[in-house]
């Protein structure tokens, strides 16, 4: 099977994620879309690793997963905190630093 198809899939996933980030207001959904973009990148890395026959892409994919896990922890904590104070998860409502 031609590995280039994986790249097309990665690009498609990245675009869906990007569009979600730009369009959706719900913080949780935006967050999930970011995860989608990260994983699209991971897919592309792994594909390139396969195509070039070395392991660099796979190693970077692991790094990305670790960073994404850390980011999820911090990001969800922030979202929960915002929801508690503002009773909404809309990113547009949280446009000011003060309440």
């Amino acid at each position: 099977m031609n590995p280039v198809y994986y790249l097309y899939l990665a690009a498609l996933l990245f675009t869906i994620g990007g569009a979600g980030v730009l369009i959706r207001r719900n913080a949780i959904v935006v967050f999930m879309c970011i995860e989608l973009m990260l994983n699209a990148c991971n897919l592309a890395f792994v594909t390139f690793s396969r195509m070039h026959g070395n392991l660099d892409g796979q190693i970077i994919a692991f790094f990305t997963m670790v960073v994404a896990a850390a980011e999820v922890v911090v990001g969800l904590a922030i979202i929960v905190s915002i929801f508690r104070t503002r009773h909404t998860a809309s990113v547009d409502d949280a446009s000011l630093m003060k309440l």
């Binding site: 990007g18 730009l22 935006v30 990113v91 547009d92 949280a94 000011l96 630093m97």
Partner: peptide, 13 residues
């Protein structure tokens, strides 16, 4: 600097 996260995202893009 509008405070709208999504407009920042567009700028980043």
């Amino acid at each position: 600097q509008s405070g709208f996260v999504r407009s920042y995202a567009v700028q980043m893009l």
